[in-house]
Design a protein around this nucleic acid. Structure first.
Lengths: 334, 334
DNA sequence: CTGTTAGCGCTTTCAG
DNA sequence: CTGAAAGCGCTAACAG
């Protein structure tokens, strides 16, 4: 059962390969109804499938876009991927998937590999958007999502971090808190983190770093204990004032809640809290938690849309930053 | 700046295309050190990248596997994808990604498309594993993950649902509950659901359906109210006995907790609870929730491993079901 | 309406 | 050590 080719079909139907090819491509103008039906019959009987590699080579058209994901395990990211795929499907592109599992080196390998595969365009959700690898990418055929580099060299679409945090924190301010704190993983110059903090600062006007609380990221147990200690002293220091926390993301929130729980404090009596990111479970906490929902699906969709425009219209512009708005979800946690 | 070809490189280096090709493929035995260096220089200078489509056609080798995902937005699934990718990367396959967004029709389209692309093999995470589309797939080059069909026609790798539920529920039994309940979305003949229930039954030996509680899936508000009512009467009926709930997954657990909260009950005083699936937030609940952690990453990895074996060794066997063990996480919720 | 044929860019004998 | 040339399977003029 050697693979069938267009030639086999041609001989079976007593026509030339050209006719078969025309049939395959829907150019029915060039053949009699009879041969058309005949071909249809034979092809479905034999379950013939034209070799797409050969077809691509001959047409010299390339409708595949490569996706480099920093960490597909991140729920935010899978939403983005879902948006990308949806749009690729609309535009009839196929998507070649790669995942770096948060490793910078892996990401470099993946991108290189995609380039070698000769994809038409690349969408990258970067591990580290300031990695030098991105300088080897051309803005003509790539777009970045989520995290943005400090110097914008590639079109990127991201969440409007700053404004949304600013808005939510302003809501907190309206509730007459004496002290507000921003809880975060170490900045490490990562744009999502610093931008959210910037929003916090704009809302609060704090001029010192005294309202910044760092949570270890992949720390050792001892570091988390120190964090809990830290929270403890903050709570004691503020025991007569109204105090609130804004968390930079859900994982950070979880850590804060855990610490508070250990210390015997509960919200909203002892403290107020709100967070970036939305997850199912926030709704079922007692009381439910106020948060910022990002439209990651749109990020993916828009990214692919922009990429398609670039690819097909060769628009050569300055790298652009497209900010996707978020949604504020107000509940009863502050 | 027309794309460079192997021919251009050849003329630039004053050698034939064959030599360039040899160079590209690492067959350095057939050329002088000089031309080798020369080629190396030219290629890196010109940033020449051989056209992979042409290469694939010429070698007639196909190292791409297609992945059809039911819903990439599901965190369980993204773990699976991560495992698949990892293994593909190890085995030097590329992965063509598709996502059905839980639509059966979309899934059919996706699979058909993958087939037309001529992928070497397919891994499918099915929307509905009993859909007729799977009969058009050959067990020679496809494997299913997660949900399994009722009649096994394709090798599939899934979680060991039954045994793990049985084991955990037995732990609950040891705590002298008078009544245990299984909370689930409607079965709809979906294997993951019925198998988990089967494990529950094996542990409890209940012979009626009285211990089965259905939660609406994508229901209207009114249906959730009915569910809450239902829970309310169960709690009242059992107000003198020790009662426990096992939830079929995290979303169901969330619903149960929500209902309980509305009704003013809390665990572990008023009821005991445990669940299938593990998420970060379960650890931070008060008290933390006992659960079953599935190794979705391994599912993906193993699936690709099996697929590779089939593809490269043409093993023709009976379709096989590979069950991946889970991990029991005992905390303080029952 | 249908067939011939020259590519698409690369690989791979087989000679030299 | 290097080159010529015949494909890989399909497309797309161009003839007929």
């Amino acid at each position: 059962m050697g693979k069938l080719t267009i030639k086999d079909i041609a001989t079976m139907a007593n026509v030339s390969t050209a006719t078969v090819s025309n049939y395959l491509n829907g150019n029915y103008d060039h053949m009699s109804l009879e041969t058309r039906k005949n071909l249809s019959q034979i092809i479905s009987d034999t379950k013939f499938r034209p070799n797409s590699t050969a077809r691509n080579l001959a047409k010299n058209e390339n409708k595949t876009i490569g996706v480099s994901i920093a960490d597909i395990t991140n729920p935010f990211t899978s939403q983005v991927l879902s948006g990308i795929y949806e749009q690729c499907d609309n535009y009839r592109y196929r998507v070649l998937f790669t995942n770096a599992g948060n490793s910078e080196q892996k990401e470099i390998d993946n991108i290189t590999r995609l380039q070698n595969e000769g994809v038409a365009g690349i969408i990258v959700d970067p591990v580290n958007p300031d990695s030098p690898i991105y300088e080897s990418l051309s803005n003509q055929n790539t777009v970045m999502v989520d995290r943005q580099s400090n110097k914008l060299i590639i079109d990127t679409v991201a969440t409007d971090n700053m404004t949304s945090v600013q808005n939510l924190v302003e809501q907190m301010k309206n509730k007459d808190y004496d002290n507000l704190y921003f809880v975060t993983w170490p900045f490490q110059n990562i744009s999502t983190r610093t931008q959210r903090y910037e929003g916090f600062i704009r809302a609060t006007n704090y001029s010192t770093l005294n309202h910044l609380i760092a949570v270890p990221h992949h720390g050792k147990e001892i570091e988390y204990q120190q964090f809990t200690q830290n929270i403890s002293s903050i709570m004691q220091r503020n025991n007569t004032s109204k105090i609130g926390f804004f968390c930079m993301n859900a994982r950070v929130l979880l850590r804060l809640l855990q610490a508070m729980q250990q210390l015997g404090y509960s919200y909203p009596q002892d403290y107020g809290v709100a967070t970036y990111e939305e997850f199912d479970w926030m709704q079922v906490m007692t009381p439910a938690i106020s948060c910022i929902h990002q439209d990651s699906y749109s990020i993916g969709k828009v990214a692919m849309h922009i990429l398609k425009q670039k690819l097909e219209h060769k628009l050569l512009r300055q790298p652009t930053l497209k900010l996707i708005p978020t949604q504020q979800i107000l509940r009863a946690s502050f």
